[in-house]
């Protein structure tokens, strides 16, 4: 989220590879532990991050080499997660956010990625990156 002065923050740039999904999920949730999330909140964050990373690898880069940047900030009980890629972006973001919408039904995509991100986090912003690719920002207040 723009304009927030975080108390603690990390930034990770990593290859857009499927093998890194679990590592990124673990990194983000390990960082979140300092604001004492419940197990359910950890799983919410883990799922939302996994959806955003999968989208970058599968849709954004479509299997080609690329980088994903993950920026996570914490302020009091709020966690703010931004995931940036330089892939192809999304032509119609509002349509892509509709439940079960997928351009890849043949590849057994459920089209539920953005729906799960929206359901499990308090806010979701999806924008095409002016440099090419996608910027996904999500926040969640830990109770």
């Amino acid at each position: 989220m723009e304009g927030i002065q975080f108390e603690n923050k990390f930034k990770l740039e990593i290859d857009a590879r499927l093998e890194n999904e679990g590592f990124i999920r673990s990194m983000v949730t390990a960082f979140a532990v300092q604001i004492n999330p419940t197990l359910s909140e950890i799983n919410d964050i883990k799922t939302a991050v996994s959806e955003a990373i999968t989208n970058s690898i599968v849709h954004g880069y479509n299997g080609k080499a690329g980088k994903i940047t993950v920026v996570v900030g914490i302020k009091q009980k709020l966690i703010d997660i931004t995931i940036i890629d330089n892939g192809v972006g999304i032509d119609d973001i509002e349509r892509a956010k509709q439940p079960f919408f997928t351009t890849r039904a043949k590849d057994e995509r459920s089209g539920m990625g953005f729906t799960l991100m929206e359901s499990f986090m308090d806010s979701l912003s999806v924008k095409n990156n002016p440099d090419g690719g996608l910027i996904v920002n999500m926040t969640k207040a830990i109770n």
């Binding site: 999920r25 799922t47 539920m112 990625g113």
Partner: peptide
């Protein structure tokens, strides 16, 4: 121990 929407796609398939 963990599943995301990719798992849903696998089940639907």
């Amino acid at each position: 121990t963990f599943m995301d929407s990719t798992g849903i796609g696998v089940l639907l398939g």
